[in-house]
Write a protein that binds this DNA or RNA. Structure first.
Length: 592
RNA sequence: CGGGGCGUGGCUCAGCUUGGUAGAGCGCUCGGUUUGGGACCGAGAGGCCGGGGGUUCGAAUCCCUCCGCCCCGACCA
């Protein structure tokens, strides 16, 4: 491929709209252009990289028995209504109507559609297990697209689904996928960590996320350097020192606290209490659907005064309680001040759960066994002290609600947790029978009994692999691609195309590399050396062969390694051989 | 959705406060010189100043409104 005819619109300056490194570099190096918020056109360089990533994914999926499908992105509403996610997905789903007025949507993921095929076609346990996947475009009406390709409204996802007769089969399928994912990210050259994760809207029993540590990420991962424990902050637990409370049996008493509104206020108020001796009472509104009926209810969350609530944890706890009642949580939000006053009889700052029995009440585990605590009295400007939780707040359900913090103890060993930003590049779920039950996907087992298929779901964000590689591997000059996902493996650069000797040598090297099957780009542009070298660094080709006048006089050309930033002079006649060897080594190193 | 910012040749931006009919650098075209890290000289092309409405003799500039984009908080590959 000749650069002069290949479309690589590089930019000298950083585009004004780009903030994160991968976004800036993808734009500057001519990989992508923006069409709208969270909507990008992939130019030839990006498309080449994406195809290479897809091919790695495809090979590894096939290697564990995966069968590639291609399902519609345009879905009728009915199937989403059947699983209940027409409402659960809420605003995140793009919806449209056809000319007859029928509801349609653009697929955000494909559990429903694959399950639909499964329920129609799979009849017997003898047909299981099945491993089905596709690499396809997904649409999500993100509330806030951002960071270039990291968070967009249209993207490519590899989504796989497994169908097994029982949970043992699911465990194996999950493990197969997990290993395949490791191979995929290894081959793409990514450094990643596998973490325990929250299942969110997907449902199911267990899930692992594949995370790349980067400040451009939007998740927080807690990890223990000592034992390897790692979990998304939405799920992470920690050890904290136990607190011994005195006078546990003393009765509680109400006392006036004029002007006290916050935990902080109460710590300095005479007769108040330190934050870890306070109970923080948060009021939420949970909206759920049961059958066709939508309803809202007040839910209380109780935490130790100095502990921050974790939104994902409370959502998952409330979701579980509602599910036990046959309802599905659709929205959980902090109550408005008017709602709080109406529900509690007092304003924020004086709230408490003592004596409140008509609302679902969730108490964080860290409060278990605590006594002699101070909390709001549900009377403005009054608090209660001497509260014994087991005695005075009887209807509380114990759950994990608090967000763990850096420096707290590892839940698995005596190590200390660290917390760092990370980007989710893959997520694997054990779905269990959630979709097979709601959608009636069953098979007959060996005993002739009809049983729901046990499912798993496994996703990879293809563009995120590209973008996170750039986040991970770049320098001031540009991208430094892992060779397996680079758009080209090497660029051949005659430093002055008008010099006939340089051109002849470069032509020859290019021809030989092409014939050898190397993915080579030939920079035949009539540009100054500086322009060409800067562009080559920016685009991030793993290797460069530079053909310049001075060295060619001695019969030599320069072989440059982008990641090591080292160059070596080689005989022009030996350059192709050296390049082939280096490329081979680099590829083999990643492919393992 | 809430909060903040921005919208002017292809790109990065100035001009707007204090209305008078649009500028710079880069890029692009042509000619010449140059050729190992984004060169230089000369000549050019290129702009419904995001859309609509209003105020005014006159609006990129002031007012209203809509749209789009970016960033910070609730979602996810």
């Amino acid at each position: 491929m000749r650069w002069s005819q290949f479309f690589i619109p590089t930019l000298r300056e950083d585009p004004a709209d780009a903030e994160v490194v991968s976004h800036k570099l993808l734009l500057r190096a001519g990989f992508i252009r923006q069409l709208g918020a969270g909507i990008y056109s992939y130019l030839p360089l990006a498309q080449r990289s994406i195809l290479k990533i897809s091919e790695i994914i495809r090979q590894e999926m096939n290697a564990i028995g995966g069968q590639e499908f291609y399902l519609p992105a345009l879905n009728p509403a009915e199937i989403w209504k059947e699983s209940g996610r027409w409402t659960v997905m809420g605003e995140n789903m793009f919806r449209l109507k056809d000319r007859k007025g029928a509801d349609l949507c653009l697929g955000m993921t494909h559990e429903e559609i694959f399950t639909d095929i499964a329920r129609h076609e799979l009849r017997s346990y003898k047909q299981l297990p099945q491993v089905w996947y596709q690499i396809q475009t997904k649409f999500r009406d993100e509330p806030r697209p951002k960071s270039g390709l990291l968070r967009v409204r249209q993207f490519t996802m590899k989504d796989a689904y497994t169908f097994d007769i029982d949970f043992a089969g699911l465990d194996k399928a999950f493990e197969d996928q997990r290993r395949a994912y490791c191979r995929i990210y290894d081959r793409c050259g990514l450094q990643y960590v596998i973490v325990e994760a929250d299942t969110g809207a997907m449902g199911g029993s267990a899930s692992n996320e594949f995370m790349v540590y980067t400040n451009a990420g939007e998740d927080m991962v807690a990890s223990c350097p000592k034992c390897g424990y790692a979990a998304n902050l939405e799920k992470a637990q920690s050890r904290i020192p136990a607190i011994v409370d005195e006078d546990a049996d003393a009765p509680f008493e109400k006392f006036p606290t004029p002007g006290v509104r916050t935990i902080e206020d109460l710590t300095t108020f005479p007769g108040g209490a330190s934050a870890e001796r306070q109970i923080k009472t948060l009021v939420y509104v949970a909206v759920s659907v049961k059958g066709k009926q939508e309803s809202g209810e007040i839910v209380l969350a109780l935490l130790r005064g100095d502990h921050p609530l974790n939104d994902a944890k409370i959502a998952s706890a409330v979701g579980a309680m509602l599910r036990a009642e046959g309802a599905e949580l659709t929205q959980l939000r902090p109550a408005h001040p008017e709602e709080i006053l109406e529900a509690m009889g007092a304003n924020p700052g004086s709230l408490g759960a003592v004596g409140v029995v008509r609302y679902k009440t969730l108490a964080d585990n860290a409060l278990q066994g605590r006594a002699n605590m101070t909390t709001g009295a549900n009377v403005d400007d009054h608090h209660l002290r001497g509260v014994n939780i087991a005695r005075d707040i009887k209807n509380a359900q114990w759950v994990d609600l608090r967000t763990v913090a850096e420096g707290e103890g590892c839940p698995r060993c005596d190590g200390v947790l660290r917390v760092a930003k990370a980007l989710e590049v893959g997520h694997i779920f054990k779905l269990g029978t959630k979709y097979s039950v709601s959608m009636g996907a069953t098979v007959l087992n060996a005993e002739g009994k009809e049983v729901p298929i046990v499912m798993g779901s496994y996703g990879i964000g293809v563009e995120r692999v590209l973008a996170s590689a750039i986040e991970l591997y770049h320098d001031d000059a540009g991208i430094i691609f892992p060779i397996t996902i680079a758009p080209f493996q090497i660029v051949v650069t005659p430093l002055n195309i008008k010099d006939a000797e340089l051109k002849a040598t470069a032509d020859r090297i290019y021809d030989e590399l092409s014939k050898a099957g190397v993915e080579v780009l030939y920079d035949d542009r009539d540009e100054r050396a500086g322009v060409k070298l800067n562009d080559a660094d920016l685009v991030g080709f793993p290797f460069q062969i530079r053909v310049g006048a001075k060295k060619l006089k001695e019969g030599k050309v320069e072989f440059y390694d982008r990641s090591l930033k080292t160059s070596e002079d080689v005989e022009a006649t030996a350059a192709v051989e050296l390049a082939r060897r280096r490329i081979d080594e680099a590829v083999r190193k990643l492919n393992g």
